[in-house]
């Protein structure tokens, strides 16, 4: 049965995935290559929330900027370790470097926090609240609220500010951006910082309902990857829509047949879509030149 709670859960999951995918596509466009460590930055965000909560005892809503800041720094580090040094090499070098970085984060978390699942603090209290006589979970509402605000903020940054315009210029054509005097490295770093912060927030938000284990990174990355591939490679709105669709699909299908078969259906769908439309559901915003 489709209840209000189920709809809300679907939207919340989709919104959390959208934050992951938004960071993924920002990093992708800035680096010109996939950041395989992006999913592990999500996990790192959840872990950071757990650790910071234990240290500071702050409530969830105040932890949020701290987690974003910490993961923003992690994004800067990722840019300087695995992305900027390889800018002149084939994209596969970045693939492998970020995969290695992902493994380092995963193993680092396993060694320091252990493999046992952790729970991130709730953002605005756990449990349910009553709206118009219907009980709805607080965390899903908080996720939708925070996610909506962040997506709007990123949209404003990219579309309405000079910094955002420059970030888009670097993403669209690195050579040309350099030619008109934009310090490309700084804007690539900035994009990765933003991507990291978004990943961290997403990890924090997901980590209350879905627990945090070091091995989850690949799954998060895969979903963002799917969202971006289906939504049109490099398209920011496409990635958001793709992520929302995956969240809704997973919630409703797994309510029917369970998590495992919902994931299986998703992977089969991806392979089928790519088989029929080799450039994603909506095509690439930029065509290839012979």
């Amino acid at each position: 049965m489709i209840t209000l709670q189920l709809v809300l859960n679907a939207l919340a999951l989709g919104m959390a995935y959208a934050l992951v995918a938004l960071g993924f596509v920002l990093a992708l466009n800035a680096a010109g290559a996939i950041n395989f460590a992006h999913g592990d930055l999500v996990v790192l965000g959840g872990a950071a929330a757990v650790v910071l909560a234990a240290w500071t005892g702050l409530p969830g809503i105040l932890l949020l900027p701290l987690v974003a800041l910490a993961l923003g720094l992690a994004g800067v580090l990722a840019a300087h370790v695995a992305i900027l040094p390889l800018a002149r090499r084939p994209a596969e070098a970045t693939f492998v470097a970020t995969l290695a970085l992902a493994a380092m984060i995963e193993q680092g978390l396993t060694v320091t926090l252990g493999a046992a699942p952790r729970t991130a603090p709730a953002l605005a209290g756990s449990g349910a609240m009553e709206i118009a006589g219907v009980a709805v979970g607080r965390q899903p509402l908080a996720i939708i609220g925070v996610g909506g605000v962040l997506v709007a903020a990123v949209w404003f940054l990219l579309e309405r500010t000079q910094v955002g315009r420059r970030m888009r210029a670097v993403a669209a054509d690195r050579q040309m951006a350099r030619a008109v005097g934009i310090p490309v490295r700084i804007y690539v770093t900035l994009s990765l910082a933003l991507a990291g912060a978004l990943a961290g927030v997403a990890g924090f938000l997901l980590g209350h309902q879905f627990l945090i284990t070091p091995t989850q990174g690949a799954g998060h990355m895969l979903k963002a990857y799917i969202a971006v591939a289906l939504g049109g490679w490099g398209s920011v709105p496409g990635a958001l829509l793709g992520a929302l669709a995956i969240g809704v699909f997973e919630t409703f299908v797994s309510a029917q047949v369970g998590d495992a078969w919902a994931s299986a259906a998703l992977y089969v769908a991806v392979i089928l879509v790519l088989a029929v439309r080799p450039s994603g559901l909506f095509g690439e915003p930029v065509g290839r030149r012979a």
Binding site: F95, A229, A264, L274, A275, P278, G280
Partner: peptide, 26 residues
């Protein structure tokens, strides 16, 4: 091979990753 080999680099990586995840689930 039939559905995935003609895909360009990042789509090829994604399709093979999806295939691998499917095998693992099974």
């Amino acid at each position: 091979a039939a559905p995935i080999l003609r895909l360009q680099s990042h789509y090829f990586a994604l399709a093979t990753l999806a295939l691998a995840s499917l095998v693992n689930l099974l």
